[in-house]
Amino acid sequence: MGRFIAKRFISMLVTLLFVVTITFFLMHAAPGGPFSREKALPAPILKVIEERFNLDKPVYQQYLIYLKDVAKGDLGPSFQRVGWTVNEIIEKTFPVSAKVGGVSVLLVLILGIPIGIVSALKQNKWQDQLAMFFATLGVTIPSFVIGTLIVHIFSTNLRILPSNGLSTWKHYIGPVIALAGFSLSFVARLTRSSMLEVMQQDYIRTARAKGLSEFTVLTKHALKNALIPVISYVGPLVAAILTGSFVVERIFAISGMGKYFVESVGNRDYTVIMGVTVFYAIFLVVMVFVVDILYGLIDPRIKLDR
């Protein structure tokens, strides 16, 4: 186990290095820069600013400087938000996104998986058809449509839900539904198809022939096998949802990470783009690592040490 973790840690570092490198050079390859304006800044001022942020140096030198800083955990100052470091921006905005995201992930798990199981059990009966009707809607309707409709119907017309901020639990309903809608539906469909496949297996017949109740057959013998594809989807999903969604945060006026990220891309706020990307990448590789460990716990045939 120790060897496995050490090996994985090194490969995670390599992955991150790739992410940083590719993002850094792509970003610099894109036309424009943080201080290019329609009305150009006076040359002396621009020179001072560029010197201040090392923008006057060749790109490869900037890259090496950035790598050194990142290795120390310093994501640098924001170019656009004067007085803010990227670390501070993430520290301030991530918890906001994570709160909405955390509730969404919980909803995905505690609703999506059971809905999938019930659908599989009642295959082609009305319960299944009803659930799959909504799941199909959830997968096909984009979050900006769901979000806008919620604001329009429940906030503007019925006036029963607040439409901006996160001050009470009621504020969470709209963003959570918009954020979880797709994943919830996807997980329900994934669990259903996975369960249906597992229920055809010979060992399910064996379990039934042992006189186990249908409930035990399902929750013990089928579920553990059926969850493997679901877990591989949910792992990266956690990273994606917790780091926030630009669309949902925009619609419900939540100052989370997603909003800042997209704004920073528009502004060419190099350090924020890099910082948020690195943060998301770290989160993602850690979640993939967690998924691998869970695999090993669920299926003994998957040996971590090899």
Partner: peptide, 22 residues
């Protein structure tokens, strides 16, 4: 359920797939 596995038991063709792998 009280009969199966208790009074009437069954073994199947393919032992590779008839046991739960997990």
């Amino acid at each position: 359920q009280k009969i199966r596995g208790n009074e009437i038991a069954m073994i199947f063709q393919d032992p590779m797939t008839s046991l739960n792998p997990v």
